[in-house]
Nucleic acid binder design. Structure first.
Length: 273
DNA sequence: TGCCCCCTGCAG
DNA sequence: CTGCAGGGGGCA
């Protein structure tokens, strides 16, 4: 499910609701959803909440951190003591119970996601963190950096490049299609064919679209909800994603939908070149 | 550097 | 019923 804006929205909710919570019990309802020893974080307090790309990181008072990747359909939902809830339900895979009697539910009906206990001192050795690329909303992501990065991958098509987490971290199918639309670039274009003006346009729109996503609380196509169980509002504003066959908001021509980089890809043949 | 695959559920 | 879905690891 979630791309950078969705995970960032959850992170912000977690900063508010989870910091200071002491974990008293971790219940695992599906073994494959949990990697490592749950007892290693019981008794620990959540001290901070970070994010790298689409990976959420709960720092604790102990020697371990808790890494959470939601993949396609993961949800992380916090329920206060005494609050009405339908949880756990059949998609619930992991439950954290806190000393406060608040609870945290990890739901994931397709079971691609995971919760992982990992030694904080060795986070840089984690298979995902070891390879993940630059944070596009960080000040270190300058146009100069982007231009140099892009130059090394001339043969790739631009959509595959943007989806590759080892290059830029956090873009997924929705925000990639949106950024390419606003940059007037067709997704199947070869990186090497982009001129400096197009690269600059793409660079600016990557940041623009991600910021807009964060400001609207992310995208909810099917399952995404924030930490409080609320849907995101980005998709109602999407220019191309999920609008195949509908008219382009700029020129009125029908939005195309086809496959690129193995993913459903939305674009306007009139506005994008 | 592309495909297949891990799963479940829902729309067409 | 088939195909498709916010991801990404592992394999030629």
């Amino acid at each position: 499910m979630p791309e950078l804006p969705e995970v960032e929205t959850i992170r912000r909710g977690a900063v508010h609701s989870l910091i200071g919570q002491k974990i008293v019990l971790v219940s695992i309802l599906l073994h494959k959803s949990f990697i490592g020893d749950p007892r290693a974080v019981e008794g620990c307090v959540i001290t901070n909440v970070g994010r790298r790309g689409k990976l959420l990181i709960l720092h604790t008072s102990g020697v371990n951190s808790i890494l959470i990747h939601l993949k396609m359909t993961g949800q992380l939902i916090s329920v206060r003591k005494g609050q009405m809830t339908k949880l756990p339900d059949k998609s619930t895979k992991v439950i954290f119970a806190f000393e406060s009697e608040d609870k945290l539910f990890f739901n994931d009906y397709r079971t691609f996601g995971y919760v992982q206990v990992f030694e904080s001192a060795n986070l840089s050795e984690h298979p995902f963190l070891k390879k993940v690329g630059i944070e596009p909303l960080d000040s270190s992501f300058t146009f100069e950096f982007f231009e140099k990065l892009v130059l090394r991958f001339n043969k790739m098509n631009v959509k595959s490049f943007l989806l590759d987490q080892t290059k830029i971290a956090g873009l997924g199918n929705i925000y990639t299609d949106e950024a390419l639309f606003y940059a007037h670039i067709l997704p199947m274009r070869q990186i090497g064919s982009l001129d400096t003006i197009e690269l600059k346009d793409l660079y600016l729109n990557i940041k623009e679209v991600l910021n807009k996503g964060v400001n609207l609380g992310g995208s909810s196509k099917t399952s995404y909800v924030n930490l409080h169980g609320e849907k995101g509002r980005f998709l109602s504003q999407a220019a191309v994603y999920g609008r195949g066959g509908m008219s382009c908001i700029v020129c009125g021509q029908p939005i195309q939908k086809s496959k690129c980089a193995g993913r459903g890809t939305h674009y306007c043949v009139h506005c994008q070149k």
